[in-house]
Design a protein around this nucleic acid. Structure first.
Length: 160
DNA sequence: GCCAACGTTGGC
DNA sequence: GCCAACGTTGGC
């Protein structure tokens, strides 16, 4: 099975890459995805070992800050059933359609790659995240894109 | 804070 | 099933 590559958006005011690094084992569940296309990627296409670029949206700067690895495949997202959660979904009662995966940070970028750098680079400027109005919070990334970004960013392995 | 682009909802 | 209205996303 071939490893896939993804871009995960997060608003740093809610959950930043730094927040991920501060967690035990630098691992978190990617909860709260409430878009069917994004869910389908997680449910159908995410495998353990896939690598994810972590992108800050709605932020200054908007940039990719590091890399996380999928460490657990899709399972039911309990926040959809919790009335106290901001991700609560009234309609999920009975049959919860929402899933999440677990990811673990493995590298941080010495030089975070900003949106404008992505737009400038000939191998990156076609990326979905750059498309105007693209709201999809989980996006497939090609191997070339991933490796180019990883190299430009100066990925530093996170020590255990 | 503005607002364009998008996904979802609901009336018909 | 259409599509207008709405709420949300996210760059700027």
């Amino acid at each position: 099975m071939k490893r896939r590559y993804w871009l995960l958006k997060t608003e740093p005011s809610v959950f930043s890459f730094e927040d991920l690094l501060s967690l035990p084992k630098q691992t978190t569940s990617w909860e709260g995805v409430r878009n069917y296309q994004a869910r389908n990627f997680m449910r159908d296409d995410f495998s353990v070992g896939d690598l994810c670029l972590i992108y800050h949206s709605n932020a200054d700067p908007t940039a990719i800050f590091g890399i996380a690895e999928v460490v657990r495949e899709a399972y039911s997202d309990p926040t959809a059933l919790d009335p106290k959660s901001k991700y609560f979904d009234e309609k999920a009662k009975g049959k919860n359609p929402w899933v999440m995966v677990d990811i673990k940070a493995i590298s941080r970028f010495k030089n975070p790659i900003t949106r404008s750098e992505l737009a400038r680079h000939y191998q990156l400027k076609k990326m979905m995240v750059l498309k105007k109005g693209c709201r999809l919070s989980i996006q497939p990334v090609t191997q070339v894109e991933f490796e180019t970004i990883s190299q430009l960013g100066g990925a530093i392995k996170i020590k255990l």
